[in-house]
Amino acid sequence: MSSPGFPHAVLFDHDGTLVDTEPLWDRAKQDLAAEHGRIWTPQDTDDTLGRPVAATIDRMRQIGVPLDDDEMFRAIFEHSVRVLEGTELTFIDGIGELLTELADAGIPAAIVTNASSALARHTAAAAPPGLVRTTVGTDDYARGVRPKPDPDAYLTAARRLGVDPARCVVVEDSPAGAAAGVAAGMPTVVVPGEKAVEPGPGLLHLRSHRELTLALLRSLDPQSPSSPFHPAQEARP
């Protein structure tokens, strides 16, 4: 049986995992480009999806938006907040129930995103009170935390929560995020997203967000022989 103390914390990606804010984020980038007489295309979105804000800044400059890095960062932030303020966020189907289960069980959560810290905090405020105890996002990357696919973002969240990274579970939907969770040494659950995540060690793929339950997360304890993350299970061909 899995340990009743597992997981010590659940670390969630944001866009496409907790809430579907990718269309809002995309609208903000379209608005910024249009403000300077440029067009942000679906290809621009696809090429920067799930990547750090630096990738969006580089692409904005490539399409001709005439701002330096600091100005671009502020403009992206301001446009995203403007779009966010006019939208009521809802959790992806199945996620709200999981957050309630975690809160009732006293298991803390974090939001770890390559996107805006303001968006992450906004979503955290919509979760059950006291559940999301820290967020990691653009504010932290500006202070030297390395974004996904580097594991630093997830390790930072675990450190802030005061928990053993190996006793956390990561929930992700992107290749960069999944790579970060695995590199951090955390069992990583992959839900469907815009970009496919290839199967590999340290990953468990789900068919839908509704499969995410506390019972499932408890069953992933790497110390349990029946867990897909137990060394004996992962060693199987």
Rank of each mutant, 00 (worst) to 15 (best):
A105G: 01
E78D: 15
S116G: 03
A75W: 10
I95G: 02
P129E: 07
P66V: 07
T87F: 14
L98R: 04
A120D: 02
G130W: 13
P149A: 05
F77D: 15
G106H: 14
V81M: 11
L98E: 10
D44M: 08
L49N: 05
L32Y: 08
V65Q: 03
P42R: 11
T56K: 04
A126Y: 08
L49P: 03
A75E: 05
P42C: 11
V136I: 11
L89V: 04
T90N: 12
P149W: 05
A109L: 01
D68I: 00
T41H: 09
A120Y: 00
R74L: 08
V145I: 05
R51F: 09
G130V: 04
D44S: 13
L89G: 13
D104T: 06
D70V: 12
R121F: 07
V53L: 09
W40N: 03
A118T: 04
H122M: 10
M60P: 00
S80K: 15
V145A: 11
A75G: 07
P149N: 08
G37W: 06
G137Q: 01
M60W: 02
Y141L: 07
A55G: 01
A115N: 07
T134N: 12
R61V: 03
R143L: 10
E35G: 12
T87L: 10
R82D: 06
A125W: 13
F77H: 12
P147L: 11
S80I: 03
N114H: 02
D140V: 02
A75R: 11
R82G: 04
D31Y: 12
A34T: 11
A105E: 06
G94S: 12
A142I: 00
V81H: 12
L67F: 13
G37Q: 11
T135W: 01
E85V: 09
A125N: 10
F73M: 11
G64V: 00
A118E: 10
R146S: 14
D46Y: 12
A126R: 15
E71S: 06
L32K: 15
Q30C: 14
I57Y: 01
R59M: 03
E71R: 13
T90E: 08
A124K: 06
T123R: 04
E97N: 08
S80M: 15
P151F: 10
I39R: 15
L102D: 05
P52V: 02
